[in-house]
Design a protein around this nucleic acid. Sequence first.
DNA 1: CAAGTGCTTGCTCATATGAGCAATTTCTGG
DNA 2: CCAGAAATTGCTCATATGAGCAAGCACTTG
Lengths: 313, 313
Amino acid sequence: MAQLGPDALVRTAYIAQQHFIEGKTRIEIAAETGLSRFKIGRILEQAVASGIVRFEIASPSSLDLELSVQLQKAYGLERAIAVNVPAETPEAIQQHLGGTAADLLSEILTDDDVLGLTSGRTVNALARSLRSLPRCEVVQLAGIAGPIQETGIETIRRVSAVAGTRPWTIYAPLIVSDAATAQGLRRQHELMDTFAQFSRVTVAVVAVGSWSPPDSQMVENPALGSQDRDALIARGVRAEVCATLVNDAGRVIEDVDDRCIAIPESQLRRIPHVIAVAGGEAKTQAIRAVLVSGLAHSLITDAATARRLIGMA
Amino acid sequence: MAQLGPDALVRTAYIAQQHFIEGKTRIEIAAETGLSRFKIGRILEQAVASGIVRFEIASPSSLDLELSVQLQKAYGLERAIAVNVPAETPEAIQQHLGGTAADLLSEILTDDDVLGLTSGRTVNALARSLRSLPRCEVVQLAGIAGPIQETGIETIRRVSAVAGTRPWTIYAPLIVSDAATAQGLRRQHELMDTFAQFSRVTVAVVAVGSWSPPDSQMVENPALGSQDRDALIARGVRAEVCATLVNDAGRVIEDVDDRCIAIPESQLRRIPHVIAVAGGEAKTQAIRAVLVSGLAHSLITDAATARRLIGMA
DNA sequence: CAAGTGCTTGCTCATATGAGCAATTTCTGG
DNA sequence: CCAGAAATTGCTCATATGAGCAAGCACTTG
């Protein structure tokens, strides 16, 4: 169309202002300006089409909403949250993702939910930020992956304390050196009790570990010999969620499942809502693998990682 | 309201995007998301109210549309156009205002209009930018105020040439030293012919001269003695339009009307649409006086001056 | 000049939307 | 644990809006 003249531009701006900012209806504007409501409608339509009026969706806080929506669509997620973090250091990322996860849990959990958690640094950050929670049960989904002081069961206890309930814990390592030991552990009463809760879990928050590049407390676990580790990486393992290993195609590698003390893949998949919380450059590929695997329904990550993930969707 | 949680924020962003950017109706979004259309409506309402969605009215070109609208409302003008000029020099301002005036004329004039023009630097800039015009008559509204080479009748001729018609010109100075001479000039056949057109003029483009601070070719005219000038300024004259003088209150000062060769105030006021074109810091007060006087219905000015005018409305 | 061609305008009618309301759920403070 | 308060939800009905269309208008083009 012929470029609008100055008069049409100003008139368009006026009408756009009246409609979008003052909130007047087209009919009101028509009455005031003496134009027909159809004319007003067409002017507004053209104003939007030609870019004179733009809609800006602004993050009010530390979230990048537009990126979140893109990420959600790109991987068909139930929820996706891209968090603006001030620095790309692992600590800053963990702290902010944990805080956002805490907010999300406060928001979406109800009394009837049963919350599943892994142990680990990310969930630790979550627990630190958690201020309130409905009265829901908390179930530990996997053994302890790293050094006790960092990843302790204390975290799980704190979350359940906020909720005001008793936690279902797993006093055991995530992985042991042989299947027989694992089997023995699983026969312990306390663990059996916790394992029995897995099927009741409705919402889980899980961390994502990266095997290549290595950024996971499971990979660093002494119970996993360097031989095992190299063999698994050779098998294509890229990421891990609750001791379930996946490759780039999102396929599960079950080689060491029998040595792990954690919710089995089959039960993990039956949890209605699994929220992965992870970020950082190094974990990008791992997160992608987990999303592709379908093990997680939702993701909380940093904005930079969200952009990378969208780019490779 | 309680600050929205991350999930609500992302959901809001998604719905806002679907509605405002993808153009889906609330009912469509309701069907997709499984929420009721009322819920969608309330989410959108809140998104706008809380500032998550903002409407931006952007100037596509060199115009400041929002400022234009404000200016128009502040003085109750028919049209107001605030032009972004790259520099605040008189030359840059004149060139851009003239160009915008030319665009405006191309846009709003029809074959049935009769265009009135003053002579002067501003209208000169207009003529230089003018590319096309309907076949309408062009009438000079006032004598020549400044040096012939700057403000010549050539300008009027050029405009009428673009329109493809014969111009009605005034070969006479804007002001002479005594009333008798002026009366004698007005009896000249050519001038009488032009004066007879004044009542036919439908759209006029006029410059605004400032008397205090002095920025007007009329003030500098030798036919106006320094005594006369001082007396007029003492009488409060602030501005001039087509040799009609006005004070800050917008009242007309008729003291030297009988010495001027120009459309009389009474006839000027009968022109349906008078567009003033003027800008620059020095002319701000003068423009204000003219707008208050009601002699002009519309204004084309630079953005900085528009802001000043709005501030003192 | 005349017929054709495309554009603008305002209509009708079906659909989308908002205001106000009643039912329900969720909080809160005994 | 419960009564009352407050918020939330989805309804009805009136209003606002969009799609499609026919008339009017300007503008070619032979």
